[in-house]
Amino acid sequence: MKWSPDTEDDTLIAAAGAGSLDAFAVLVQRYQAAIRAFTAVRLDNAADAEDLAQEAFIVAWRKIKTFEPGSYFGAWLRAIALNLVLNYRRKFRAHGIGGHAELEALLEDQHEALDATATSRLIALEECLSKVDGPSQKLLRQRYAEGRTIGQIAAETGRGYSALTMQLHRLRLALASCVEQHVSASQTP
């Protein structure tokens, strides 16, 4: 049976508990942005973060019968994802921001405040990115889509390392500002 994207969580969870992957797929569509963002902001390795987000859904699928009806499915998923993240950190020592655990801990303290708006932030970021073009778009693509280091980009373009570092940061600041505006606007009644 195909499920409508409007079907309520409880109905989908009951069907998934009875073995319907189609029902579970609708839940995945609904919560994937939140869980991907949840793991991504907690790890400094984007590929591993994506892998853990997928694992969170697989664990949820296996344990769906243990989900208590009436509680919030998103929070249950986040608890599973957090457990996976903590296990991951026990296995692999994270580098942390700038290579320092102290800076990572500072960010850690702020995650909870930002979790509530994770989905809208991710959607807003896509929207904001679509407005960037020209050399800025190229720089973002080189750094984030292709994963190149500033040193490599500097060597290829002949530009200074520090100038590129600051240009990239100004882009981040502009995108962060754009995201904030989108999120604020979406929360305004």
Partner: peptide
């Protein structure tokens, strides 16, 4: 610091 650091980690998701 928090918003921009998080954005830095979300960018690979939305660009890739």
């Amino acid at each position: 610091f928090a918003e921009v650091s998080e954005l830095d980690r979300l960018l690979p998701l939305v660009t890739r």
